[in-house]
Design a protein around this nucleic acid. Structure first.
Lengths: 297, 297
DNA sequence: AAGCAGCATAAGAATAGTTTATAATACCAC
DNA sequence: GTGGTATTATAAACTATTCTTATGCTGCTT
Protein backbone atom coordinates (compact mmCIF):
# COMPACT_ATOMS: atom_id res chain seq x y z
CA UNK A 1 0.00 0.00 0.00
CA UNK A 2 1.34 3.41 -0.88
CA UNK A 3 -0.76 6.35 0.20
CA UNK A 4 -0.64 9.45 -1.96
CA UNK A 5 -0.73 12.29 0.60
CA UNK A 6 -2.54 14.61 -1.78
CA UNK A 7 -5.35 12.12 -2.13
CA UNK A 8 -5.47 11.70 1.63
CA UNK A 9 -6.05 15.44 1.86
CA UNK A 10 -8.71 15.25 -0.82
CA UNK A 11 -10.44 12.58 1.23
CA UNK A 12 -10.44 15.00 4.13
CA UNK A 13 -12.13 17.64 2.01
CA UNK A 14 -14.69 15.12 0.84
CA UNK A 15 -15.56 13.94 4.32
CA UNK A 16 -15.78 17.48 5.59
CA UNK A 17 -17.99 18.47 2.70
CA UNK A 18 -20.01 15.27 3.25
CA UNK A 19 -20.08 14.82 -0.49
CA UNK A 20 -17.75 14.33 -3.42
CA UNK A 21 -19.32 17.09 -5.45
CA UNK A 22 -19.22 19.41 -2.45
CA UNK A 23 -15.50 18.84 -2.14
CA UNK A 24 -15.14 19.43 -5.87
CA UNK A 25 -16.80 22.80 -5.45
CA UNK A 26 -14.48 23.64 -2.56
CA UNK A 27 -11.45 22.62 -4.61
CA UNK A 28 -12.64 24.37 -7.74
CA UNK A 29 -12.67 21.12 -9.66
CA UNK A 30 -15.31 19.04 -11.32
CA UNK A 31 -16.94 16.13 -9.55
CA UNK A 32 -15.43 13.34 -11.69
CA UNK A 33 -11.94 14.54 -10.83
CA UNK A 34 -12.58 14.08 -7.13
CA UNK A 35 -14.39 10.79 -7.74
CA UNK A 36 -11.33 9.58 -9.57
CA UNK A 37 -8.95 10.54 -6.77
CA UNK A 38 -11.11 8.87 -4.14
CA UNK A 39 -11.40 5.79 -6.29
CA UNK A 40 -7.65 5.61 -6.71
CA UNK A 41 -7.16 6.04 -2.98
CA UNK A 42 -9.62 3.27 -2.21
CA UNK A 43 -7.95 1.01 -4.73
CA UNK A 44 -4.61 1.67 -3.06
CA UNK A 45 -5.90 0.74 0.39
CA UNK A 46 -7.95 -2.14 -0.91
CA UNK A 47 -11.24 -1.25 0.71
CA UNK A 48 -13.96 1.39 0.64
CA UNK A 49 -13.29 4.59 2.53
CA UNK A 50 -16.69 6.09 1.81
CA UNK A 51 -20.20 4.76 1.52
CA UNK A 52 -22.08 6.51 -1.26
CA UNK A 53 -25.67 7.59 -1.07
CA UNK A 54 -27.44 9.81 -3.52
CA UNK A 55 -27.41 12.44 -0.78
CA UNK A 56 -23.68 12.36 -0.28
CA UNK A 57 -21.13 10.12 1.35
CA UNK A 58 -20.28 8.91 4.83
CA UNK A 59 -16.86 7.62 5.82
CA UNK A 60 -16.33 3.99 6.71
CA UNK A 61 -14.30 3.15 9.78
CA UNK A 62 -11.21 3.06 7.59
CA UNK A 63 -12.18 6.42 6.17
CA UNK A 64 -12.49 7.86 9.66
CA UNK A 65 -9.13 6.43 10.64
CA UNK A 66 -7.51 7.94 7.59
CA UNK A 67 -9.28 11.23 8.22
CA UNK A 68 -7.62 11.52 11.60
CA UNK A 69 -4.21 11.24 10.01
CA UNK A 70 -5.26 13.57 7.22
CA UNK A 71 -6.12 16.21 9.80
CA UNK A 72 -2.70 15.84 11.36
CA UNK A 73 -1.00 16.05 8.00
CA UNK A 74 -3.03 19.07 6.98
CA UNK A 75 -2.15 20.91 10.13
CA UNK A 76 1.51 20.09 9.71
CA UNK A 77 1.39 21.47 6.20
CA UNK A 78 -0.38 24.58 7.37
CA UNK A 79 2.11 25.05 10.18
CA UNK A 80 4.98 24.57 7.77
CA UNK A 81 3.53 27.11 5.39
CA UNK A 82 3.11 29.65 8.17
CA UNK A 83 6.58 28.99 9.51
CA UNK A 84 8.22 29.33 6.11
CA UNK A 85 6.30 32.48 5.37
CA UNK A 86 7.63 33.98 8.59
CA UNK A 87 11.11 33.04 7.51
CA UNK A 88 10.65 34.39 4.04
CA UNK A 89 9.61 37.74 5.47
CA UNK A 90 12.44 37.63 8.00
CA UNK A 91 9.98 37.85 10.85
CA UNK A 92 11.75 34.89 12.35
CA UNK A 93 14.92 32.95 11.80
CA UNK A 94 18.47 32.87 13.02
CA UNK A 95 21.61 33.89 11.19
CA UNK A 96 24.92 32.76 12.63
CA UNK A 97 27.80 35.12 12.04
CA UNK A 98 31.49 34.71 12.75
CA UNK A 99 33.66 37.79 12.76
CA UNK A 100 37.07 38.92 13.91
CA UNK A 101 37.19 41.01 17.09
CA UNK A 102 37.42 44.53 15.75
CA UNK A 103 34.58 43.90 13.32
CA UNK A 104 32.53 42.51 16.15
CA UNK A 105 33.13 45.75 17.97
CA UNK A 106 32.25 48.08 15.13
CA UNK A 107 30.60 46.79 11.94
CA UNK A 108 28.46 44.17 13.55
CA UNK A 109 26.71 46.26 16.20
CA UNK A 110 25.68 48.82 13.59
CA UNK A 111 24.36 46.11 11.30
CA UNK A 112 22.54 44.42 14.13
CA UNK A 113 20.62 47.47 15.24
CA UNK A 114 19.53 47.94 11.65
CA UNK A 115 18.49 44.28 11.39
CA UNK A 116 16.54 44.35 14.61
CA UNK A 117 14.80 47.52 13.52
CA UNK A 118 13.20 46.05 10.44
CA UNK A 119 13.10 42.30 10.96
CA UNK A 120 12.59 39.73 13.64
CA UNK A 121 15.84 37.96 12.89
CA UNK A 122 17.95 36.55 15.65
CA UNK A 123 21.69 36.90 15.20
CA UNK A 124 24.19 34.56 16.80
CA UNK A 125 27.72 35.91 16.93
CA UNK A 126 30.96 34.00 17.19
CA UNK A 127 34.33 35.64 17.53
CA UNK A 128 36.81 34.08 15.12
CA UNK A 129 39.85 35.11 13.17
CA UNK A 130 39.47 34.66 9.41
CA UNK A 131 40.88 31.13 9.14
CA UNK A 132 38.78 29.86 11.98
CA UNK A 133 35.73 31.70 10.68
CA UNK A 134 36.10 30.00 7.33
CA UNK A 135 36.34 26.63 8.99
CA UNK A 136 33.15 27.37 10.89
CA UNK A 137 31.51 28.37 7.62
CA UNK A 138 32.73 25.24 5.94
CA UNK A 139 31.38 23.05 8.72
CA UNK A 140 28.00 24.76 8.53
CA UNK A 141 28.47 26.09 12.05
CA UNK A 142 27.96 29.59 10.79
CA UNK A 143 26.15 31.24 7.90
CA UNK A 144 28.29 34.29 7.35
CA UNK A 145 32.01 34.69 7.98
CA UNK A 146 33.33 38.21 8.24
CA UNK A 147 36.99 38.09 7.26
CA UNK A 148 39.69 40.47 6.21
CA UNK A 149 42.41 40.01 3.64
CA UNK A 150 45.35 41.97 2.34
CA UNK A 151 45.91 42.33 -1.36
CA UNK A 152 49.41 40.85 -1.06
CA UNK A 153 48.38 37.97 1.17
CA UNK A 154 45.92 35.49 -0.21
CA UNK A 155 43.36 33.89 2.01
CA UNK A 156 43.46 30.12 2.33
CA UNK A 157 42.33 27.98 -0.61
CA UNK A 158 39.15 27.19 1.22
CA UNK A 159 37.97 30.74 0.73
CA UNK A 160 37.61 30.03 -2.98
CA UNK A 161 34.74 27.69 -2.31
CA UNK A 162 32.66 30.48 -0.82
CA UNK A 163 30.89 33.41 -2.33
CA UNK A 164 32.16 36.78 -1.25
CA UNK A 165 30.64 40.18 -0.67
CA UNK A 166 33.00 43.04 0.05
CA UNK A 167 31.78 45.03 3.02
CA UNK A 168 34.41 47.72 3.23
CA UNK A 169 37.95 48.71 2.44
CA UNK A 170 39.81 49.23 5.65
CA UNK A 171 42.85 51.54 5.34
CA UNK A 172 45.84 50.88 7.54
CA UNK A 173 47.47 53.64 9.56
CA UNK A 174 50.86 54.11 11.16
CA UNK A 175 51.03 54.30 14.93
CA UNK A 176 53.76 56.30 16.60
CA UNK A 177 54.40 57.16 20.20
CA UNK A 178 53.70 60.82 20.91
CA UNK A 179 57.33 61.10 21.98
CA UNK A 180 58.62 59.77 18.67
CA UNK A 181 60.84 62.28 16.87
CA UNK A 182 58.93 61.88 13.64
CA UNK A 183 55.53 61.83 15.26
CA UNK A 184 54.53 65.04 13.61
CA UNK A 185 56.83 65.12 10.63
CA UNK A 186 55.27 66.44 7.47
CA UNK A 187 55.25 64.06 4.50
CA UNK A 188 55.96 60.94 6.53
CA UNK A 189 57.15 57.83 4.65
CA UNK A 190 57.47 54.26 5.72
CA UNK A 191 61.22 54.25 5.20
CA UNK A 192 61.50 56.95 7.84
CA UNK A 193 60.81 54.15 10.32
CA UNK A 194 63.18 51.60 8.85
CA UNK A 195 65.31 51.55 11.97
CA UNK A 196 62.52 51.54 14.52
CA UNK A 197 61.34 48.61 16.55
CA UNK A 198 57.96 47.30 15.36
CA UNK A 199 55.09 45.48 16.96
CA UNK A 200 53.23 43.21 14.58
CA UNK A 201 49.73 41.71 14.77
CA UNK A 202 48.41 38.35 13.73
CA UNK A 203 50.53 36.24 11.34
CA UNK A 204 48.68 37.58 8.34
CA UNK A 205 49.07 41.17 9.55
CA UNK A 206 52.73 40.61 10.23
CA UNK A 207 53.15 39.31 6.72
CA UNK A 208 51.40 42.37 5.38
CA UNK A 209 53.64 44.66 7.41
CA UNK A 210 56.74 42.92 6.13
CA UNK A 211 55.45 43.07 2.60
CA UNK A 212 54.80 46.82 2.79
CA UNK A 213 58.25 47.36 4.27
CA UNK A 214 59.90 45.35 1.54
CA UNK A 215 58.17 47.38 -1.10
CA UNK A 216 59.44 50.48 0.71
CA UNK A 217 62.90 48.99 0.69
CA UNK A 218 63.69 47.79 4.19
CA UNK A 219 63.37 44.83 6.51
CA UNK A 220 61.36 45.77 9.59
CA UNK A 221 62.77 44.81 12.97
CA UNK A 222 59.80 43.16 14.67
CA UNK A 223 60.41 43.03 18.39
CA UNK A 224 56.88 42.35 19.59
CA UNK A 225 53.94 40.38 18.38
CA UNK A 226 50.27 40.43 19.45
CA UNK A 227 46.95 40.41 17.66
CA UNK A 228 45.31 42.45 20.40
CA UNK A 229 44.86 45.98 19.11
CA UNK A 230 44.62 47.36 22.65
CA UNK A 231 47.97 45.85 23.50
CA UNK A 232 49.51 47.17 20.29
CA UNK A 233 48.48 50.71 21.10
CA UNK A 234 49.60 50.33 24.65
CA UNK A 235 53.09 49.24 23.56
CA UNK A 236 53.27 52.10 21.10
CA UNK A 237 52.02 54.65 23.57
CA UNK A 238 54.78 53.61 25.95
CA UNK A 239 57.32 54.33 23.25
CA UNK A 240 58.41 50.72 22.96
CA UNK A 241 57.74 50.42 19.24
CA UNK A 242 55.89 51.75 16.22
CA UNK A 243 53.19 49.81 14.44
CA UNK A 244 50.34 49.75 11.94
CA UNK A 245 46.68 49.09 12.61
CA UNK A 246 43.60 49.07 10.42
CA UNK A 247 41.18 51.93 10.94
CA UNK A 248 38.45 49.53 12.02
CA UNK A 249 40.62 48.40 14.90
CA UNK A 250 41.21 52.04 15.80
CA UNK A 251 37.52 52.72 15.63
CA UNK A 252 36.97 49.85 18.05
CA UNK A 253 39.51 51.19 20.51
CA UNK A 254 41.65 54.26 20.37
CA UNK A 255 44.44 54.93 22.82
CA UNK A 256 44.75 58.72 22.94
CA UNK A 257 48.43 58.50 23.77
CA UNK A 258 49.19 57.19 20.30
CA UNK A 259 49.79 59.30 17.23
CA UNK A 260 47.98 58.00 14.14
CA UNK A 261 49.58 58.92 10.83
CA UNK A 262 49.14 58.08 7.16
CA UNK A 263 51.88 57.26 4.71
CA UNK A 264 51.77 56.83 0.94
CA UNK A 265 53.26 53.34 1.06
CA UNK A 266 50.49 51.98 3.29
CA UNK A 267 48.01 49.59 1.67
CA UNK A 268 44.78 48.67 3.33
CA UNK A 269 42.86 45.49 3.84
CA UNK A 270 39.54 44.39 2.50
CA UNK A 271 36.73 43.24 4.75
CA UNK A 272 34.52 40.57 3.18
CA UNK A 273 31.49 38.67 4.18
CA UNK A 274 31.84 35.07 3.02
CA UNK A 275 28.92 32.69 2.69
CA UNK A 276 28.19 29.35 1.12
CA UNK A 277 27.36 29.68 -2.57
CA UNK A 278 23.72 30.48 -3.01
CA UNK A 279 23.23 31.45 0.61
CA UNK A 280 22.72 35.07 -0.39
CA UNK A 281 19.40 34.01 -1.86
CA UNK A 282 18.19 33.00 1.58
CA UNK A 283 16.16 36.00 2.73
CA UNK A 284 17.50 36.07 6.28
CA UNK A 285 21.10 35.86 5.13
CA UNK A 286 20.45 38.41 2.41
CA UNK A 287 19.08 40.76 5.06
CA UNK A 288 22.21 40.38 7.15
CA UNK A 289 24.46 40.91 4.16
CA UNK A 290 22.44 43.94 3.20
CA UNK A 291 22.69 45.41 6.66
CA UNK A 292 26.43 44.79 6.65
CA UNK A 293 27.11 46.45 3.31
CA UNK A 294 24.94 49.51 3.88
CA UNK A 295 26.83 50.08 7.05
CA UNK A 296 30.24 51.39 6.16
CA UNK A 297 32.19 52.59 9.20
CA UNK B 1 2.16 29.49 -0.82
CA UNK B 2 0.75 26.03 -1.40
CA UNK B 3 2.96 23.15 -0.36
CA UNK B 4 2.65 19.95 -2.35
CA UNK B 5 2.97 17.25 0.31
CA UNK B 6 4.58 14.81 -2.11
CA UNK B 7 7.34 17.28 -2.80
CA UNK B 8 7.77 17.88 0.89
CA UNK B 9 8.39 14.16 1.25
CA UNK B 10 10.82 14.22 -1.65
CA UNK B 11 12.69 17.00 0.12
CA UNK B 12 12.96 14.72 3.12
CA UNK B 13 14.47 11.99 0.98
CA UNK B 14 16.92 14.45 -0.52
CA UNK B 15 18.06 15.80 2.83
CA UNK B 16 18.41 12.31 4.24
CA UNK B 17 20.38 11.18 1.22
CA UNK B 18 22.41 14.41 1.45
CA UNK B 19 22.16 14.70 -2.30
CA UNK B 20 19.59 15.05 -5.03
CA UNK B 21 21.01 12.22 -7.06
CA UNK B 22 21.18 10.03 -3.98
CA UNK B 23 17.49 10.60 -3.39
CA UNK B 24 16.83 9.84 -7.04
CA UNK B 25 18.56 6.50 -6.61
CA UNK B 26 16.49 5.77 -3.52
CA UNK B 27 13.29 6.68 -5.35
CA UNK B 28 14.23 4.81 -8.48
CA UNK B 29 14.08 7.98 -10.54
CA UNK B 30 16.55 10.00 -12.50
CA UNK B 31 18.28 12.97 -10.98
CA UNK B 32 16.62 15.67 -13.15
CA UNK B 33 13.20 14.51 -11.97
CA UNK B 34 14.13 15.13 -8.35
CA UNK B 35 15.86 18.39 -9.24
CA UNK B 36 12.66 19.49 -10.89
CA UNK B 37 10.52 18.67 -7.85
CA UNK B 38 12.87 20.45 -5.48
CA UNK B 39 12.98 23.43 -7.78
CA UNK B 40 9.20 23.58 -7.88
CA UNK B 41 9.04 23.32 -4.11
CA UNK B 42 11.54 26.12 -3.67
CA UNK B 43 9.64 28.26 -6.13
CA UNK B 44 6.48 27.68 -4.16
CA UNK B 45 8.04 28.77 -0.88
CA UNK B 46 9.96 31.60 -2.48
CA UNK B 47 13.37 30.79 -1.09
CA UNK B 48 16.09 28.15 -1.28
CA UNK B 49 15.60 25.04 0.81
CA UNK B 50 18.95 23.52 -0.14
CA UNK B 51 22.41 24.84 -0.76
CA UNK B 52 24.04 22.96 -3.62
CA UNK B 53 27.64 21.88 -3.65
CA UNK B 54 29.22 19.54 -6.10
CA UNK B 55 29.44 17.04 -3.25
CA UNK B 56 25.75 17.16 -2.49
CA UNK B 57 23.34 19.48 -0.77
CA UNK B 58 22.80 20.86 2.71
CA UNK B 59 19.47 22.18 3.93
CA UNK B 60 18.99 25.84 4.70
CA UNK B 61 17.23 26.80 7.88
CA UNK B 62 13.96 26.80 5.96
CA UNK B 63 14.83 23.37 4.62
CA UNK B 64 15.44 22.10 8.11
CA UNK B 65 12.17 23.56 9.33
CA UNK B 66 10.30 21.92 6.49
CA UNK B 67 12.14 18.66 7.11
CA UNK B 68 10.79 18.52 10.63
CA UNK B 69 7.24 18.73 9.33
CA UNK B 70 8.05 16.27 6.57
CA UNK B 71 9.15 13.75 9.18
CA UNK B 72 5.89 14.19 11.02
CA UNK B 73 3.89 13.83 7.83
CA UNK B 74 5.83 10.77 6.77
CA UNK B 75 5.23 9.06 10.07
CA UNK B 76 1.55 9.88 9.94
CA UNK B 77 1.36 8.35 6.51
CA UNK B 78 3.23 5.27 7.65
CA UNK B 79 1.00 4.95 10.70
CA UNK B 80 -2.09 5.33 8.53
CA UNK B 81 -0.85 2.66 6.16
CA UNK B 82 -0.19 0.26 9.00
CA UNK B 83 -3.52 1.00 10.60
CA UNK B 84 -5.45 0.51 7.37
CA UNK B 85 -3.61 -2.68 6.61
CA UNK B 86 -4.67 -4.04 9.99
CA UNK B 87 -8.21 -3.12 9.19
CA UNK B 88 -8.07 -4.63 5.74
CA UNK B 89 -6.91 -7.92 7.21
CA UNK B 90 -9.52 -7.67 9.98
CA UNK B 91 -6.83 -7.77 12.60
CA UNK B 92 -8.45 -4.74 14.13
CA UNK B 93 -11.63 -2.80 13.75
CA UNK B 94 -15.06 -2.66 15.27
CA UNK B 95 -18.35 -3.73 13.79
CA UNK B 96 -21.52 -2.53 15.45
CA UNK B 97 -24.45 -4.90 15.24
CA UNK B 98 -28.04 -4.42 16.28
CA UNK B 99 -30.23 -7.48 16.64
CA UNK B 100 -33.50 -8.54 18.15
CA UNK B 101 -33.30 -10.47 21.43
CA UNK B 102 -33.68 -14.07 20.29
CA UNK B 103 -31.08 -13.57 17.56
CA UNK B 104 -28.77 -12.06 20.13
CA UNK B 105 -29.20 -15.22 22.14
CA UNK B 106 -28.59 -17.68 19.31
CA UNK B 107 -27.27 -16.55 15.93
CA UNK B 108 -24.97 -13.89 17.23
CA UNK B 109 -22.98 -15.86 19.78
CA UNK B 110 -22.20 -18.54 17.21
CA UNK B 111 -21.10 -15.95 14.69
CA UNK B 112 -19.00 -14.16 17.28
CA UNK B 113 -17.00 -17.16 18.31
CA UNK B 114 -16.27 -17.80 14.66
CA UNK B 115 -15.25 -14.17 14.14
CA UNK B 116 -13.02 -14.12 17.18
CA UNK B 117 -11.37 -17.31 16.06
CA UNK B 118 -10.05 -16.01 12.79
CA UNK B 119 -9.91 -12.22 13.16
CA UNK B 120 -9.16 -9.54 15.67
CA UNK B 121 -12.46 -7.77 15.14
CA UNK B 122 -14.30 -6.22 18.00
CA UNK B 123 -18.08 -6.58 17.91
CA UNK B 124 -20.41 -4.16 19.63
CA UNK B 125 -23.91 -5.46 20.13
CA UNK B 126 -27.09 -3.52 20.61
CA UNK B 127 -30.43 -5.12 21.33
CA UNK B 128 -33.12 -3.65 19.11
CA UNK B 129 -36.33 -4.74 17.51
CA UNK B 130 -36.30 -4.47 13.69
CA UNK B 131 -37.72 -0.95 13.41
CA UNK B 132 -35.37 0.43 15.98
CA UNK B 133 -32.44 -1.48 14.47
CA UNK B 134 -33.12 0.08 11.09
CA UNK B 135 -33.21 3.51 12.62
CA UNK B 136 -29.85 2.83 14.24
CA UNK B 137 -28.53 1.66 10.88
CA UNK B 138 -29.90 4.72 9.17
CA UNK B 139 -28.29 7.03 11.72
CA UNK B 140 -24.94 5.28 11.31
CA UNK B 141 -25.08 4.12 14.91
CA UNK B 142 -24.71 0.57 13.77
CA UNK B 143 -23.15 -1.22 10.79
CA UNK B 144 -25.36 -4.27 10.58
CA UNK B 145 -29.00 -4.61 11.58
CA UNK B 146 -30.32 -8.10 12.11
CA UNK B 147 -34.04 -7.99 11.49
CA UNK B 148 -36.85 -10.39 10.82
CA UNK B 149 -39.80 -10.00 8.53
CA UNK B 150 -42.89 -11.95 7.66
CA UNK B 151 -43.87 -12.48 4.05
CA UNK B 152 -47.30 -10.95 4.68
CA UNK B 153 -46.01 -7.98 6.63
CA UNK B 154 -43.67 -5.62 4.85
CA UNK B 155 -40.89 -3.94 6.68
CA UNK B 156 -40.91 -0.17 6.81
CA UNK B 157 -40.04 1.78 3.65
CA UNK B 158 -36.70 2.65 5.15
CA UNK B 159 -35.60 -0.95 4.71
CA UNK B 160 -35.58 -0.42 0.95
CA UNK B 161 -32.64 1.93 1.25
CA UNK B 162 -30.44 -0.82 2.68
CA UNK B 163 -28.83 -3.82 1.16
CA UNK B 164 -30.03 -7.13 2.49
CA UNK B 165 -28.48 -10.52 3.10
CA UNK B 166 -30.78 -13.32 4.17
CA UNK B 167 -29.31 -15.18 7.09
CA UNK B 168 -31.95 -17.81 7.69
CA UNK B 169 -35.57 -18.79 7.31
CA UNK B 170 -37.11 -19.15 10.72
CA UNK B 171 -40.19 -21.40 10.84
CA UNK B 172 -42.93 -20.59 13.32
CA UNK B 173 -44.35 -23.22 15.63
CA UNK B 174 -47.56 -23.57 17.62
CA UNK B 175 -47.33 -23.60 21.41
CA UNK B 176 -49.89 -25.47 23.47
CA UNK B 177 -50.16 -26.16 27.18
CA UNK B 178 -49.43 -29.84 27.97
CA UNK B 179 -52.92 -29.98 29.43
CA UNK B 180 -54.53 -28.74 26.23
CA UNK B 181 -56.99 -31.28 24.80
CA UNK B 182 -55.43 -31.03 21.34
CA UNK B 183 -51.85 -31.02 22.60
CA UNK B 184 -51.10 -34.34 21.00
CA UNK B 185 -53.75 -34.47 18.30
CA UNK B 186 -52.57 -35.96 15.04
CA UNK B 187 -52.81 -33.70 11.97
CA UNK B 188 -53.25 -30.48 13.93
CA UNK B 189 -54.62 -27.44 12.07
CA UNK B 190 -54.72 -23.80 13.00
CA UNK B 191 -58.51 -23.74 12.90
CA UNK B 192 -58.53 -26.31 15.66
CA UNK B 193 -57.52 -23.44 17.93
CA UNK B 194 -60.01 -20.90 16.60
CA UNK B 195 -61.77 -20.67 19.92
CA UNK B 196 -58.70 -20.61 22.15
CA UNK B 197 -57.31 -17.59 23.91
CA UNK B 198 -54.08 -16.41 22.27
CA UNK B 199 -51.02 -14.59 23.45
CA UNK B 200 -49.38 -12.47 20.78
CA UNK B 201 -45.91 -11.04 20.50
CA UNK B 202 -44.65 -7.75 19.17
CA UNK B 203 -47.01 -5.73 16.91
CA UNK B 204 -45.51 -7.24 13.80
CA UNK B 205 -45.81 -10.75 15.22
CA UNK B 206 -49.37 -10.10 16.28
CA UNK B 207 -50.14 -8.96 12.77
CA UNK B 208 -48.58 -12.12 11.41
CA UNK B 209 -50.60 -14.25 13.77
CA UNK B 210 -53.81 -12.50 12.79
CA UNK B 211 -52.93 -12.84 9.14
CA UNK B 212 -52.31 -16.59 9.44
CA UNK B 213 -55.59 -17.00 11.34
CA UNK B 214 -57.49 -15.04 8.72
CA UNK B 215 -56.10 -17.27 6.02
CA UNK B 216 -57.21 -20.25 8.10
CA UNK B 217 -60.64 -18.67 8.40
CA UNK B 218 -61.01 -17.30 11.92
CA UNK B 219 -60.36 -14.26 14.03
CA UNK B 220 -58.04 -15.12 16.90
CA UNK B 221 -59.03 -13.98 20.34
CA UNK B 222 -55.89 -12.31 21.62
CA UNK B 223 -56.09 -12.00 25.36
CA UNK B 224 -52.46 -11.33 26.15
CA UNK B 225 -49.64 -9.45 24.52
CA UNK B 226 -45.90 -9.54 25.21
CA UNK B 227 -42.82 -9.65 23.05
CA UNK B 228 -40.92 -11.61 25.68
CA UNK B 229 -40.63 -15.20 24.52
CA UNK B 230 -40.05 -16.43 28.08
CA UNK B 231 -43.27 -14.83 29.23
CA UNK B 232 -45.16 -16.26 26.25
CA UNK B 233 -44.08 -19.77 27.11
CA UNK B 234 -44.83 -19.23 30.77
CA UNK B 235 -48.39 -18.13 29.99
CA UNK B 236 -48.87 -21.09 27.69
CA UNK B 237 -47.40 -23.56 30.14
CA UNK B 238 -49.87 -22.36 32.75
CA UNK B 239 -52.69 -23.16 30.38
CA UNK B 240 -53.76 -19.52 30.03
CA UNK B 241 -53.48 -19.37 26.24
CA UNK B 242 -52.01 -20.87 23.10
CA UNK B 243 -49.48 -19.08 20.95
CA UNK B 244 -46.93 -19.17 18.15
CA UNK B 245 -43.20 -18.56 18.38
CA UNK B 246 -40.37 -18.71 15.86
CA UNK B 247 -37.93 -21.59 16.27
CA UNK B 248 -35.07 -19.20 16.92
CA UNK B 249 -36.93 -17.91 19.98
CA UNK B 250 -37.46 -21.47 21.09
CA UNK B 251 -33.81 -22.21 20.58
CA UNK B 252 -32.99 -19.27 22.79
CA UNK B 253 -35.24 -20.45 25.58
CA UNK B 254 -37.43 -23.51 25.81
CA UNK B 255 -39.94 -24.02 28.58
CA UNK B 256 -40.25 -27.79 28.88
CA UNK B 257 -43.81 -27.47 30.11
CA UNK B 258 -44.96 -26.30 26.70
CA UNK B 259 -45.90 -28.53 23.78
CA UNK B 260 -44.43 -27.41 20.44
CA UNK B 261 -46.39 -28.41 17.37
CA UNK B 262 -46.34 -27.75 13.67
CA UNK B 263 -49.33 -26.98 11.50
CA UNK B 264 -49.62 -26.70 7.72
CA UNK B 265 -51.03 -23.16 7.86
CA UNK B 266 -48.02 -21.78 9.68
CA UNK B 267 -45.70 -19.54 7.67
CA UNK B 268 -42.28 -18.60 8.91
CA UNK B 269 -40.28 -15.46 9.06
CA UNK B 270 -37.09 -14.47 7.30
CA UNK B 271 -34.06 -13.25 9.21
CA UNK B 272 -32.00 -10.70 7.31
CA UNK B 273 -28.85 -8.77 7.92
CA UNK B 274 -29.29 -5.21 6.63
CA UNK B 275 -26.42 -2.89 5.92
CA UNK B 276 -25.81 0.37 4.15
CA UNK B 277 -25.33 -0.12 0.41
CA UNK B 278 -21.71 -0.96 -0.32
CA UNK B 279 -20.92 -1.75 3.29
CA UNK B 280 -20.50 -5.42 2.41
CA UNK B 281 -17.33 -4.45 0.61
CA UNK B 282 -15.81 -3.31 3.89
CA UNK B 283 -13.68 -6.27 4.99
CA UNK B 284 -14.72 -6.18 8.63
CA UNK B 285 -18.40 -6.00 7.79
CA UNK B 286 -18.00 -8.66 5.15
CA UNK B 287 -16.40 -10.90 7.76
CA UNK B 288 -19.33 -10.41 10.11
CA UNK B 289 -21.84 -11.06 7.34
CA UNK B 290 -19.93 -14.14 6.34
CA UNK B 291 -19.87 -15.46 9.87
CA UNK B 292 -23.60 -14.82 10.18
CA UNK B 293 -24.58 -16.62 6.98
CA UNK B 294 -22.36 -19.66 7.46
CA UNK B 295 -23.93 -20.07 10.81
CA UNK B 296 -27.44 -21.35 10.31
CA UNK B 297 -29.09 -22.41 13.56
C1' DA C 1 -44.24 12.44 -11.87
C1' DA C 2 -40.88 15.73 -12.75
C1' DG C 3 -36.99 18.04 -11.32
C1' DC C 4 -32.95 18.21 -8.66
C1' DA C 5 -28.79 16.60 -6.41
C1' DG C 6 -25.90 12.94 -5.85
C1' DC C 7 -22.23 9.36 -7.82
C1' DA C 8 -19.97 6.56 -11.80
C1' DT C 9 -17.97 5.99 -16.17
C1' DA C 10 -15.82 6.91 -20.70
C1' DA C 11 -13.17 9.57 -23.70
C1' DG C 12 -10.68 13.48 -24.95
C1' DA C 13 -7.68 17.53 -23.68
C1' DA C 14 -4.52 19.76 -20.85
C1' DT C 15 -1.11 19.56 -17.56
C1' DA C 16 2.52 17.36 -14.94
C1' DG C 17 6.00 14.53 -14.53
C1' DT C 18 9.86 11.68 -16.22
C1' DT C 19 13.59 10.57 -19.04
C1' DT C 20 17.42 11.27 -22.16
C1' DA C 21 21.05 14.06 -23.37
C1' DT C 22 24.12 17.60 -22.36
C1' DA C 23 26.77 21.06 -19.86
C1' DA C 24 29.14 23.08 -16.07
C1' DT C 25 31.47 22.67 -11.81
C1' DA C 26 34.05 20.74 -7.97
C1' DC C 27 36.68 17.10 -5.89
C1' DC C 28 40.08 13.16 -5.91
C1' DA C 29 43.76 10.22 -7.24
C1' DC C 30 47.65 9.56 -9.94
C1' DG D 1 48.11 19.49 -13.33
C1' DT D 2 45.27 16.13 -15.59
C1' DG D 3 41.91 12.67 -16.20
C1' DG D 4 38.15 10.46 -13.84
C1' DT D 5 34.19 10.76 -11.14
C1' DA D 6 31.19 12.80 -8.40
C1' DT D 7 27.70 16.58 -8.14
C1' DT D 8 23.64 19.85 -9.94
C1' DA D 9 21.24 22.45 -13.87
C1' DT D 10 18.86 22.81 -18.19
C1' DA D 11 16.50 21.69 -22.53
C1' DA D 12 13.70 18.89 -25.21
C1' DA D 13 10.97 14.99 -26.06
C1' DC D 14 8.11 11.71 -24.46
C1' DT D 15 4.91 9.51 -21.05
C1' DA D 16 1.72 9.42 -17.68
C1' DT D 17 -1.34 11.60 -14.91
C1' DT D 18 -4.96 14.47 -14.03
C1' DC D 19 -8.85 17.23 -15.20
C1' DT D 20 -12.81 18.17 -17.98
C1' DT D 21 -16.72 17.36 -20.86
C1' DA D 22 -20.50 14.51 -21.73
C1' DT D 23 -23.43 11.05 -20.31
C1' DG D 24 -26.20 7.72 -17.53
C1' DC D 25 -28.20 6.17 -13.42
C1' DT D 26 -30.19 6.45 -8.71
C1' DG D 27 -32.71 8.37 -5.06
C1' DC D 28 -34.82 12.20 -2.83
C1' DT D 29 -38.19 16.08 -2.92
C1' DT D 30 -41.92 18.79 -4.34
Amino acid sequence: MLLDPRRVLILKDVIEATSISGAARVLGWTQPAVTHHIGALERSVGMPLLLRRSTGVTPTQAGKALLAHADAIASHLAAAEAELEEMRLCRSGTVRVAAFPSALATLIPHAMTRIHKDSGLHIRLTEAEPDEAMKLLHDDDVDVAIVFSYADTQLTDISESFDRLTIAMDPVALLLPPTHPLAHKQDLHLTDLADDAWVAGCPRCREHLVSMAHRAGFEPRIDHETDDYVVVQSLVSQGLAVSVLPMVALAAYRNEDVVVRDAPELTGRRIDALFRPGADRVPSIAAVLGALTNDAV
